[in-house]
Amino acid sequence: MRKYSGFALLAAASLALSGCASNEALPAPTPAAAVTRVAISEETFSDVQKDIFDSVAKADSEGNTDSLAARATGPFTTIRGAQYKLKKFLADSYGLETLSTTPIQTAISPAQNYPHTAISVMEAPQGSNLQTISVFEQSTARDNWKIWGALDILPGATFPALKLSDSAAVSIAPDAGDGLVASPQDVLAGYTKAAQTAKNPDGMTFADDKLRQTLWDGNKTNTEAIGDAGSVEMTFSTADVDPVTFATDDGGALVVGQINFRTKISVTQEDATVTLGSMIGAMATGKADGEIQVKKSLTADYTVMVAFHIPADGAKDETITAVGASDPVLLAVKNG
């Protein structure tokens, strides 16, 4: 009996060891640790931008706002749609704003929260010597990236360096004013006041800019044209669109938003009639050379995109500076 005990022991050991080979535990998935990453890689986004500009170019050629909506959103859709309308009325006498399709530098927001946003400094488009700013947005996960806005960098303005965290641009909520001279929403609202009254609102100082000057000049021209027959009033308001804001390296922010303004022409002189042509006439009549007779009042609604650099709170220079602006676009005309 003892003679075979050794072999029995060896056999038992062999069987026990062989069992180790077959009872392998099922592996469990190991998710990667959550890290901050950009919403989309720059390489992929470059392809996306190309798709966007191709889509816009196609919509431009068709003048079709539905087609435009596939890759455009926000203020850009509004502005481009109005331009399509004007283009439709004015035909060759009106040229669509040329978009630059060559990005110089792009900053993309983190992937964690929606909407995802991205901002690119673009080369000057054909026929212009001003670099432009293009803003893109992905509203939800099931939406694709779309162009949200496009505006020129104003002459003499400097595009501020954006703050990056783990390669992602740092987004700032519209109402987040901590660490800033004012929140993005307040800055836009303050600018409308400043444009309206030509005075800086409380707590904010706006540097003079070409946009306001242009608007004031236009208003002055209209007032002179109306003369004693009536009055011209220009009112400014912020558009019902949340601005897109990124933190800058200097602790401030770059906000891009939309501002509307309305020009109201009131005929105060009895039996007087004011005749308006050009874009207002075309928009009002639907004809390229259309004219509209204003006997009481006429309102022309415009919209424009603006970009401001908001300094950090306590910065040496707390002046808010306009960085970019688009050409104002006539949205609608209402007579009477």
């Binding site: 062999s14 060891l17 062989s18 180790c20 080979a21």
Partner: peptide, 12 residues
């Protein structure tokens, strides 16, 4: 022999 078995015919 068992080790070789683990690597061959007993291997999953």
């Amino acid at each position: 022999a068992i080790g070789i078995g683990f690597m061959t015919f007993w291997a999953p």
